[in-house]
Design a protein around this nucleic acid. Structure first.
Lengths: 354, 354
DNA sequence: TTGAAAGCGCTACCAG
DNA sequence: CTGGTAGCGCTTTCAA
């Protein structure tokens, strides 16, 4: 056969009209069962794979697809257990409604905005992107129903997230309450660039990742309230990966005098810090206390004190909010509750450390 | 405005033709920069979000999207660290080429095949599905470039996977070599149903999940070669989740005489078995040895003996194979190497256990 | 119960 | 460098 079969091909072969063949697929009750059977048989014979979804899309105007802008780059997202937990929730809810998920790429170098504009979707979900990223701007410009998860903070849009600042403030208070005064901070990336290293005031001020900014602010508030000089607190910025956490942990533990507590902005960084402490033969929490954030599954295994947030629930709710929006409902703003989970990785500092 | 703006709207507003406006977006070099600027300005003013991707799709015939059939249900896939590792690799490679990933849903009850037929994609990737699942059949019928990962085993299609049987045979030999004779097996699901419980010969024979079948076969081969009666070996089937592993672990450890080794078909099940052993106050490996499969990140943390497979690499290669297929290349079959990683969870059985 | 006609919004080709 | 024309393959009235 010269070209792919279409509805018309089948119609011609049977001497019926195109619409009848279409009905055979989409409205079985609109034609005689026997005719329908004949149509389907001929279609199978001719290798017709059914109505072309792209054409149907154009005609009906609906796609049954949600587009997901997932972190700065897809490949980062899957390495982050927190993001995967969210995706699991989102997928569960979407799948129940027969909705597909389109993972929109952010090609390096190239115009990531183009990928966003090319996405055939009925709605968009933006997960944890920095303010002013081109992909985000392009997404908002499409004027589709959109829900933003965690960041960026754009007024007027449906939003779901947690109160990061209050949460890290609670962590700081917990550690300060145990008697720690020499404290170091490990933060996830603050700006979508390749920087890794100490965070000074200038860097802190330029943060465009809302989460990073807020978590840092919570730590700062807590320490400041305890009279600790924020400028003198060691702070290391790294991408959210285990290996980077090890590196950052080494960096802060090498300081003199050595910190007695490390507050990390994510569990993965905290897990890395734990590993760095072990390398140095430091006991936890005797030699050094460590805290994380997210309560990913590995946190429980490592007995890590952390902040639990409802990862899965966040995904489920995001999908629901999008469905509401598509049904014409108003954009809502939702804050999910979090909870400090105290485990064995924090305790009072000991003079006779390790 | 009554209806959404289209190319024509902009063209009319400026008194130019539709094609010129189209060129302004797709072929900037085909028209005067000044005209282009004017067009874009008017478009912005009228709130035109750029050419409709669905229409473009129909016209060009290409979508720039890979469809992914991910496990029996999306929600399962994300709970499986092995699957996530694969997805990370796939996403990385696809993203580099500006290709989007469509996660095709498998709505419960409903016709999952319909979702597959509705997917606007240039190619399909089938990851770990059972033989004869309706979604798989529908996918194959679409006649698109397709690569199958791990399962099902369909001749004539591009395929990438590992040799599961040889791998589990190696595990069995390792444990037998340590002197174990009372051995229990934990297997991932064998059939896409809701069954959880012991595996008898009938159940084993009806397995449609190729991976489960092969891993079980490897264990069987090893034990048979050592003269152990396979029918008498305790075998428990569970979904691939930590909690299910705990449950299965309890079940086999309750047997009299108690097994001295538990061979699990996945790391998550093994991790669960480890937890069950701990509940009973059993030492590992003194009281009981445990092995897993996959070498997910948590396996190293738990010091679990397991089989390492190149999860990420599998995803990267799958994406490449799909690209080759789309470029007109022939379907290839690829087997990735695996490696037994011996850690602290296996050792000789001790008479004075625990 | 079936068929004819009218586009959905766009891009590719070719002429000017 | 710009414009006209011809569909891509389908669904959806509406009339027969």
């Amino acid at each position: 056969m010269a070209r792919r079969a279409t509805l018309q091909t089948i119609a011609d072969a049977l001497g019926v009209s195109r619409s009848t063949v279409s009905n055979a697929y989409n409205r079985p009750d609109q034609l005689a069962p026997e005719l329908r059977a004949r149509i389907l048989a001929v279609a199978a014979e001719l290798g017709y794979p059914g109505p072309d979804p792209a054409a149907r899309r154009l005609r009906t105007g609906r796609s049954g697809v949600i587009g997901l802008l997932f972190t700065e780059a897809l490949s980062y997202a899957f390495a982050d257990p927190g993001a995967v937990g969210f995706l699991e929730g989102l997928a569960r809810e979407a799948e129940a409604g027969g909705t597909a998920l389109l993972l929109v790429p952010s090609p390096p170098e190239q115009d990531a905005a183009a990928a966003v504009r090319d996405a055939v979707v009925d709605g968009l979900c933006i997960y944890s992107m920095a303010d002013q990223q081109p992909a985000v701007i392009a997404a908002l410009e499409r004027g589709l129903p959109t829900v933003i998860v965690e960041e960026p903070d754009v007024p007027g849009h449906a939003f779901i997230g947690i109160d990061d600042r209050t949460a890290t403030r609670t962590v700081a208070d917990h550690v300060l309450g145990l008697g720690h005064r020499r404290i170091a901070i490990l933060t996830d990336r603050l700006v979508p660039d390749a920087y890794e290293g100490p965070v000074d005031a200038a860097r802190e001020a330029m943060a465009t990742f809302h989460i990073g900014r807020q978590r840092l602010a919570g730590f700062r508030e807590g320490l400041a309230a305890a009279g600790i000089d924020w400028a003198a607190v060691p702070k290391e910025e790294r991408p959210n990966e285990l290996a980077a956490g090890v590196d950052a942990g080494r960096a802060v533990l090498a300081r003199e005098p050595r910190p007695t507590a490390i507050l990390a902005a994510t569990d993965q960084l905290a897990l890395g810090a734990l590993q760095a402490a072990q390398e140095l033969g430091l006991r936890v929490p005797g030699g050094v206390s460590v805290t994380g954030f997210d309560d990913i599954p590995a946190a429980a295994l490592a007995d890590l004190t952390t902040v639990r947030q409802p990862l899965l629930e966040k995904g489920v709710q995001a999908a629901r909010m999008l469905a509401e929006l598509q049904a014409g409902g108003p954009p809502r703003r939702v804050r999910l509750p979090v909870e400090l989970v105290v485990r064995g990785s924090t305790g009072p500092p000991r003079a006779d450390a390790p």
